[in-house]
Amino acid sequence: MKISTTALLEELKSKTIHHLQFAETLLLKPENELNFRISADSWSVLECLEHLNRYGDFYIPEISHKISSSVTTPKPDFKPGILGNYFAKSMLPKEKLNKMKTLKAMNPIHSELNKEVVNEFIKHQQQLLDLLDRAGNIDLEKTKTAISISKLITLKLGDTFRFVTYHNARHVVQAERVLKNI
């Protein structure tokens, strides 16, 4: 499977703009609604975003560093790697979200959270948009990034962008479902 590099970056930018706009609407809601959970073991809207912020704290600096140090030139098409494609596709939201275990350090359940979480998520989405713009000037296959669970495993930058964006989409959908239950 090959994807036009331009089309891939545009798709990811479009999704990221949607995530950014969603987060901006959350700033208008009271914190008690953003801390509401459907059940004792489910995440609130703020916990969904805090989970994404924790991943963003790893991936945004990692991606930024790899883009800044890349000496490659862009290619017209991107071919996902086997592992990267698997990780990215596993994050895509589905009609019935399949539950996944998260690492303890990435699980924000029962944290004391406020709207600063939303502001941080907005900042991350703005940074991601900037990185997606900058990525148009390098090779998304030859430029590799570490992953959060092991610095020994690397993914093509294009797959890392897909993973991060689809993971964001997954938890934005989860947060939207929580809001529908208030």
Rank of each mutant, 00 (worst) to 15 (best):
L179T: 01
E50G: 15
L155R: 13
W43P: 10
D130S: 15
I67P: 10
I67L: 01
L152Y: 06
K142M: 05
K151A: 12
K144R: 13
K180R: 09
P74R: 10
R170F: 01
Y59Q: 07
M1I: 03
L132H: 09
M1V: 05
K66S: 13
A175K: 02
R54K: 10
N32T: 10
Y86H: 03
K79D: 02
I38K: 05
L26R: 06
T154W: 08
T6N: 04
S70G: 09
P76G: 12
I67F: 00
V117P: 04
K2D: 00
F121P: 04
K142S: 03
N168M: 08
I109D: 10
T145I: 13
S150M: 11
L97N: 12
Q126H: 02
Y166N: 13
S111N: 13
G81H: 12
A23N: 09
I67E: 00
I182K: 03
L26D: 01
I60D: 01
L12R: 12
I38S: 04
N85A: 02
V71K: 15
K123D: 06
R177T: 03
T165F: 10
N107T: 05
F78D: 06
D159A: 00
S14I: 05
I153Y: 04
K15L: 08
T165N: 00
W43A: 06
E116Y: 07
E50F: 05
Y166A: 08
D133H: 15
E10V: 09
I3G: 14
M100I: 09
N168Q: 13
S39L: 12
D130I: 13
L157I: 00
I63A: 06
K75C: 05
L131G: 14
L83K: 08
Q126W: 01
R170L: 00
T16E: 05
L113A: 02
K13S: 07
M100H: 07
S70E: 01
E33Y: 14
S14A: 08
I153K: 02
K15A: 10
L132M: 08
L34I: 06
Q126T: 09
Q21W: 05
S68R: 12
K96E: 05
I138R: 15
C48N: 08
G158M: 09
C48V: 02
L83C: 02
L20E: 05
K151C: 07
I82L: 11
G158P: 15
S90Q: 12
M91S: 14
S148H: 15
V45L: 03
E31P: 02
E33T: 04
P76K: 15
V173G: 01
M106H: 13
F36S: 11
F161H: 11
A23M: 08
T165C: 04
K29S: 13
K2E: 00
K94A: 14
K156L: 00
T16Y: 13
L128M: 13
P76C: 11
K180M: 13
I182R: 04
Q174D: 04
E95R: 07
G56E: 01
N107L: 13
T165E: 00
I122N: 02
T160S: 10
T165M: 02
I3H: 15
M106N: 10
F121K: 09
R162Q: 12
A146M: 13
T102V: 12
K144W: 01
F36N: 06
M91I: 02
S68T: 12
I122P: 01
S14Q: 06
A105F: 05
G84K: 07
L103G: 12
A23W: 06
E47A: 03
L129F: 03
P80N: 07
I67K: 00
T160W: 07
K75H: 03
G136D: 06
E62R: 14
E31T: 13
